[in-house]
């Protein structure tokens, strides 16, 4: 069964089958964010609830990095951004597994 890659520095955007939600991932080097939410070990929807609660902590245009390792978060955080009109900036692999998913506060 097709599954996205989830380890190493391989960017998910390399796979042809990865549509919209995966496009943001480009470089393995992770830039600074204004706030980091540690949701490692938490199952969806908890990482998304944590993000929704704290997105307004950063200033407009600020970036929240959500650290999560539940496979559902990889798809669901970009989907949440689309539904809530915030920006999914990029997704970076974390060296110990999981991802750092960067979200820009748009309003």
């Amino acid at each position: 069964m097709w599954r996205r890659r989830s380890n190493g520095g391989a960017s998910a955007s390399e796979t042809r089958e990865a549509p919209e939600a995966r496009e943001a991932q480009q470089t393995p080097a992770e830039p600074q964010s204004d706030l980091t939410i540690d949701a490692l070990g938490r199952k969806c929807p908890i990482p998304i609830i944590m993000l929704a609660e704290q997105i307004n902590v950063v200033p407009l245009g600020g970036v929240v990095a959500v650290h999560a390792d539940d496979p559902a978060a990889f798809t669901d955080i970009p989907a949440w951004c689309r539904l809530k009109s915030h920006g999914h900036v990029a997704t970076y692999d974390l060296p110990r597994g999981g991802w750092s998913i960067h979200v820009r506060r748009n309003y």
Binding site: C44, P45, I48, A72, D76, P78, A79
Partner: peptide
Amino acid sequence: GSSCTASTLRPSHVLEAMGVLTHG
């Protein structure tokens, strides 16, 4: 198609490939 409801820990490959919400 949510992950915790299937026999695997992963969400449905269909919802993942579409890029839509997989939980709930």
